[in-house]
Simulated scan of single mutants.
Amino acid sequence: MNDITLDMEAVRDTAAEHMLTGIPRAHVDTPVDQVIDTLRGSVFECADTVFVTDAAGKLLGLVRINDLFADGRLKIGDIMKSEHESVRLDADQEQIAALAMRLKMIAVPVVDRNERLIGAVPPEALFRILREEHMEDLQVIAGITAHDDGPGAALDASILNRLSRRLPWLIFGLVASSVITVVMVQFEHALSANVAVAFFVPALVYIAGAIGSQAVSVSVRSLAADSVQILPLLRDELIIGVGIGAALGVLASFGVLAVFGDQLLATAVGLAVLSGGTMSAVVGFGLPWVFQKLGSDPAMGSGPICTIIQDVASLFIYFGLVSLLVL
């Protein structure tokens, strides 16, 4: 089958959808002055880069237009950047954008299975891809299922369509939140013994959720990059979580001590913030990675699921500390 013969469904969100074929090409042994003369008067769909090929049409290197004017006596093969990467027609658009950023490419060449140049993904398409992927990640992290025509179409969809895409994960969250009720019931004695214990539950849940949301966002964007090393990033996120938790924990404990004058309760709140913040950072960062390992979209439902895990764990930690230190 010819590489270019692809149905519309197959090319969606791939290099084939964004590729342009009207691009400057030059044989590797052609003098630079001759290349310039050949380009003069021609109209191209994307003219930011000259793509250098051999006699068989195989891609050998790239030359940016501004580099053509360095020395006209040289052959274009002498000034081309031979260290480059290309993509196939079926390459995912997110990988294409990540490649362009990593190698600082203006346009990404597209080749067939024999490494012959077919076309290129232009810079305006790269910007469009980045915006679409960013919008899609934001929606999916929030638990909004993908629209068939892309994230941009979701804004113009009917109210019923938008409702149906947002509701499923929220129903899951409602059902899963019953676990929080179970936790509260299990520690009813703590609430009865000291009503002040209940005052800090909303703050603890909020802090855990906020830290986890930040970690989820960092994780999803990291997984979208090429050759990302997850373990070093997870280590860094753990350190960041400890730092944030410690800072907020100290502030919270001093606040509780100043208002209530209860040193043990202040200690319990401070330690709960520290532990909950650390746990939320690790869970928020690690959950999308687990989804990816299982073959799912790393952003899919990460926000709602992460929120439930963080809330339940934070309350368990808090009430456990209160039972141990205060009661």
Rank of each mutant, 00 (worst) to 15 (best):
P298S: 02
L99N: 11
C306W: 01
P232Y: 04
E115N: 15
L126T: 00
P122M: 05
L155T: 14
P122T: 03
I36N: 02
T38R: 14
D13P: 04
E237A: 04
A55C: 07
A190W: 01
T5S: 12
G150R: 14
A154W: 02
N114D: 06
M184D: 01
Q214P: 00
I76A: 01
R116Q: 03
H134K: 10
M80S: 02
T49G: 06
S227M: 06
T49R: 10
E83V: 15
A281I: 05
I180L: 13
V63S: 07
I106H: 12
R73I: 00
G119A: 11
V228G: 01
D236C: 13
N161E: 14
Q139S: 13
G173V: 06
H147F: 06
Q34C: 12
V326T: 11
L191K: 00
T49M: 09
A246G: 08
I239C: 00
D226A: 11
F44P: 01
G150Q: 14
I244V: 12
L89G: 08
N114Y: 07
S178M: 15
G57W: 11
G284Q: 13
A146R: 14
L170S: 08
L163N: 08
I118A: 09
A247L: 12
P304N: 03
A203H: 13
A56I: 03
M8N: 09
S227P: 00
E124D: 08
I129H: 03
R113S: 05
F187P: 03
V218N: 06
D13N: 15
D78L: 03
I305H: 02
D13S: 14
K104A: 11
L163K: 13
V52Y: 04
F199M: 14
A224M: 04
R73D: 02
I141R: 08
G286L: 09
L234H: 10
A313F: 11
L74T: 10
S82R: 15
T5W: 13
A107P: 00
V290R: 13
R166H: 03
V32W: 10
A97D: 03
P202K: 07
R113M: 02
L126M: 02
E237P: 02
G77Q: 07
A313D: 04
G286S: 11
G212M: 06
W169P: 09
A100N: 14
D33I: 10
I76N: 01
Q292G: 03
I144A: 05
H134T: 09
L191M: 02
C46N: 09
Q263F: 13
D149K: 15
F254W: 14
P24Y: 02
L248H: 14
A107M: 03
F200V: 05
S222Y: 01
R88V: 05
D48Q: 10
I4M: 08
V312S: 09
V121Q: 00
S227G: 06
V242Y: 04
Q310I: 15
A55M: 11
